[in-house]
Write a protein that binds this DNA or RNA. Sequence first.
DNA 1: CTTGCGGTGTTAACGGTGTCAACACTAAGT
DNA 2: ACTTAGTGTTGACACCGTTAACACCGCAAG
Lengths: 209, 209
Amino acid sequence: MPRRTSAKPPKRKRPNSYHHGDLKAALVACATDILRKAGPSALTLRAVARAAGVSEAAPYRHFADRRELVAAVAEAGFERLGQAMGAAMQQGSRGGLRAVAEAYVRFAHENEAEYRVMFGPEVANTAHLPALRETARSVLAFVAQGIGKLQQAGLVGPGDPGLMAVVTWAQLHGLVMLSLDGQSTKVAPSIEAQVQEATRIMMFGMAAR
Amino acid sequence: MPRRTSAKPPKRKRPNSYHHGDLKAALVACATDILRKAGPSALTLRAVARAAGVSEAAPYRHFADRRELVAAVAEAGFERLGQAMGAAMQQGSRGGLRAVAEAYVRFAHENEAEYRVMFGPEVANTAHLPALRETARSVLAFVAQGIGKLQQAGLVGPGDPGLMAVVTWAQLHGLVMLSLDGQSTKVAPSIEAQVQEATRIMMFGMAAR
DNA sequence: CTTGCGGTGTTAACGGTGTCAACACTAAGT
DNA sequence: ACTTAGTGTTGACACCGTTAACACCGCAAG
């Protein structure tokens, strides 16, 4: 194949404009799209710029480096995750935790590449990414709040809801990771069975303080 | 260079030779070393080759691509993890699960970069890496075996040990990941407290079938 | 209206990386 | 001694992250 340096007419959202209008958001959207369709290895700064119909150095006007772009993608993912969990929360009080757990697992499986990026090594150092850290923490606070409600309803024994939330989140996250890696499918029948078993164990353990 | 013809070359390292002797193992060792000292972003095929004192294309005689090298590093990590868990198993029967859990968490924290690679997206598709898959599965089998012993001792209720092992591993893995990402430090005081809380919940839940 | 200026997009380049083909050297078997 | 397979080397290609220098747009000040 010949070199790809041939001229490609840039498609602009505002035809008569040299400037893009909202490149930053467009870049995040294109990056998420690429991530979904072609996997993490294709998530390249240059590819994102090309997908946005812009020169390959343009992203540097909005992101200091590649990490910041990836972090923005991860942050958007956390927000969508929070929305999915919030929607599942309305399902009722008894199976509330169960419904949220299933929503979490479903999100992870339906958005595998995004989920991997959210917890991947590229955004590992959340100390330097305050926005990401805050978004992720709000998810944790959400779980803690749900556990608090279960405690008031007498379905969960006393104890620090924050600690229980961490343990609960960890359980789900670990389950999802092992499932995504194909490490658990041959031993345990299905992800649903694993979630069921996990929530059962968690509920028993948390009620038994 | 010098013509040194040694008497019996037993496939071991021979410094004064055009051929390396055991480049594959040396490459994995150098890669692990680089990973520990400089982090995942420095784990580059070329850098590994340079560290091994060999040309930058030499690794392709032993690994099809970069993924295979990384997978080999991950496999070595799983083996060391298994050894650490096995050593902790000898500590006694009552707190056996607890001791293994602590060994697991300690390994992850003392070998953060390695641990991240073991579960990272670069080796995600274990379906194409049978050796890695098998090594990881033996760790799971090890946990399942320990749970079986606890069942015989009456410390854990009846149920599929394989399923329980998956749930247990997932709990530990999730805890470790959140801790490594700095997502849990501000909510739960210490990783020890989290392990304690997690094992307490797990033991209660598993005993209560 | 002209002029200047800051924000944004472009071009061109640098060094580094994964990968491959062609070549070179060595060990070992015939 | 000749061949051959295995292993290391050289050189090249395309791509990537990043930066500097430049070009264009919109807008405010004069």
